[in-house]
Design a binder for these strands. Structure first.
Lengths: 190, 190
DNA sequence: TTGGTTTGTCAACAGGTGTTGACCTACAGT
DNA sequence: ACTGTAGGTCAACACCTGTTGACAAACCAA
């Protein structure tokens, strides 16, 4: 038995346009300033359609903020390079998918977005740290430290746009942050 | 000639109450959700007073977001301990003054707040890095790296409230982030 | 063609926002 | 006591927000 795909509806294109516009607006403006009217205008549809297909603004955001970090299999990474590889992977994910930016911008002022951020941390970052940390009991703290450095870099580079941080190249960032991530994940407790 | 203090006005108490309530609201809710009406209610005054004394919401925020990091004199810190000392200092400043939290929460969605954040970076963090970096030309990047780790920790601990990060003690954080800050500021370019 | 379901449009609602101006009150200087 | 000014109150404004319900158009099955 194949997985039962719900047969394609005629309105799928509209749904997709709404979701795409929502991601863009949430990423650019944050939760409160991204208005349903503006999202609908971007998608060239009536604001009422947003309500019809997504119920309300919170559910629309929940749909727009689904995100998979797509970590590589930890076993395929040489132990000495996990830091650099993860920093590089995070940078790529951050730049190729605006969803993370939307999530960050919204999570700072919206409770539901904050919880979604916590869920991503618990379901995706924590298992990764558990697979890499020398002692599984330390995994949560190590995951938290990794998150603090990665999110801080994203904050300064993509949100606050601090000029020296914006000016760094991808390789600069990997060279500086790689050892930090490596230490947070694998080094002995200081 | 003594510095010409503007003689105290009868309304100084009201002004201070407004500013204090504004800091609290901006810190807790961010720029857009902190309404003038709510701030006025906290200060037990009429919303119109806010406009009279601060002109408009943007100017009120600008007044509420003035902040001095109060760095210790770099020369008084033993070179080997600058990282730990600065991390400890940042933690203290962050916890004793909610202005930084207001600034961070607002800077993510409000352009003026973002610029104020950039100004603090340029006027306060950058000179510190310049005084500590081995090569002054590298100071901006080193300051940016320091900011990324410090702001990231604040974001995860005070805003997103990631449980493992909230659970860390002050000493935990200093022990983990101290060496990172030390390396960003003083170690050779990797 | 008929009838019903899906897709879309329009206008309006109830409530909240920053902001303004008219007005009253209490004080300081004379 | 009189008067000008600073401090404070009140109601309203114009606008924007999420959200709703009534209605029209397009589609598809019979």
């Amino acid at each position: 038995m194949t997985t039962t795909e719900p047969r394609p509806r005629r309105s799928d294109a509209t749904r997709a346009a709404i979701l795409s516009a929502a991601k863009e607006r949430f990423a650019a403006d944050g939760y409160e300033r991204a208005t349903i009217r503006a999202i609908a205008a971007d998608a060239n549809i009536d604001p009422a359609m947003v309500m019809r297909y997504y119920g309300n603004k919170e559910k629309l955001f929940a749909a727009a903020a689904v995100f998979d970090l797509r970590f590589p299999d930890p076993d395929t990474i040489p132990h000495a390079q996990v830091g650099a590889r993860l920093v590089a992977h995070f940078l790529d994910r951050w730049e190729e998918d605006e969803t993370l930016l939307a999530l960050l911008r919204a999570a700072v002022t919206n409770a539901a977005a904050g919880e979604q951020m916590q869920a991503i941390f618990a379901n995706q970052v924590l298992p990764l740290a558990a697979a890499l940390a020398p002692d599984p009991a330390e995994a949560p703290v190590r995951a938290g430290l990794l998150a603090s450095q990665i999110m801080g870099m994203a904050l300064c580079r993509f949100v606050l746009r601090l000029p020296p941080v914006v000016g760094m190249t991808r390789d600069d960032i990997i060279a500086w942050l790689g050892p930090t991530a490596q230490r947070y994940l694998t080094a002995a407790h200081p």
